[in-house]
Nucleic acid binder design. Structure first.
Lengths: 170, 170
DNA sequence: CAGTTTATGTCAGCCTTGTTGACTTTCCAA
DNA sequence: TTGGAAAGTCAACAAGGCTGACATAAACTG
């Protein structure tokens, strides 16, 4: 728990005394350990399908924005097209993702999850949501609000833009 | 379980009304985007030294627990000894880490940062702390408390044990 | 229309960092 | 004295990043 009650009244007016290097270090470690847990459940599931985290990410964001283009996905995932292409090709060949030629701009490929793709996405995201739900429940709504605030501040501005786009978008 | 028909009506019974699938998804995406930012600054620095994230992690936890054994580090990092060994060997050869034979148990190797190692660690952690400090400042102390609470709940129990050990330990 | 830019795909090759398996050396402890 | 734990090493492999080069089709621009 936070040791804030024990006389260490955080001077909230500009002073920032609550930000010692050690506390920041603990925040860094919390991110490291938590991210491991965050990916653990999907990783286990993915093994059964001989897929990796990269496939999960692609599937997640196609689910999030059905019909998204390859370029848009590249932007969000922050990898090279060669790297994404390898993953996408596998998903398309295996019939989890469908790639449709754009109607206005026929250079573009629009990506959709097939039935099978949606099933995998559901399995993965339910596992991951399960852990998040439990964590949120144990921490409480106030903590959750703070959690999201801090995460948003940690992001690079460009990523924050993507993140916020989903807020209004869907 | 997750009836996505009406979607927004979560299972009642407790006060879990704030935990819709969509909110959980947003939390998941927040973790994804934030982790990218979280590692971005050290990653940039590491390029200059021809090291990777694995080296950073090793250096971080050796700094945190000087004299830690290889086995303990393996436990914390959650990789195989072969994988860690490759990284450790490079750091030792380059004179950033010193490996001392244990005194009680001479099978064990105790790991320490050299002067040079401490310099690199400082450069990396200052960059990473800088981002965390800015995020904490912008989000405020209450948000930070919630942030840490949720992260701790996301961890696997074993990782949480490690995380909490640092709390009392040093 | 010709030329350029854009979106995508693909081949080849490289790097980091993870994995397994097999084997050795050291050395504590029963 | 011997079994087994701790540590190191070698080999091989895979995922998933990366760069560079090149191809194609479509859209855009002068």
């Amino acid at each position: 728990m936070s040791d804030r009650g024990t006389g260490q009244t955080p001077i909230s007016g500009e002073s920032l005394l609550f930000l010692t290097d050690d506390q920041l270090r603990r925040g860094i470690e919390a991110m490291f350990f938590a991210y491991r847990g965050f990916t653990a459940d999907p990783d286990r599931i993915l093994q059964d399908y001989a897929y990796g985290r990269a496939h999960h990410r692609a599937v997640h964001f196609i689910k999030r924005s059905p019909g998204t283009t390859v370029n848009n996905l590249l932007d969000i995932l922050g990898v090279t097209k060669q790297s994404l292409n390898r993953v996408l090709r596998a998903l398309i060949e295996d019939g989890l993702v469908e790639s449709r030629v754009g109607k206005q701009d026929r250079r573009e490929r629009h990506l959709y999850l097939t039935e099978t793709g949606q099933e995998l996405e559901k399995e993965l995201s339910e596992a991951q949501r399960g852990r998040m739900r439990a964590a949120y429940r144990d921490a409480g709504p106030e903590a959750v609000a703070g959690f999201r605030q801090v995460l948003e501040q940690i992001m690079d501005p460009e990523m924050r833009r993507h993140f916020q786009a989903f807020k209004e978008g869907t």
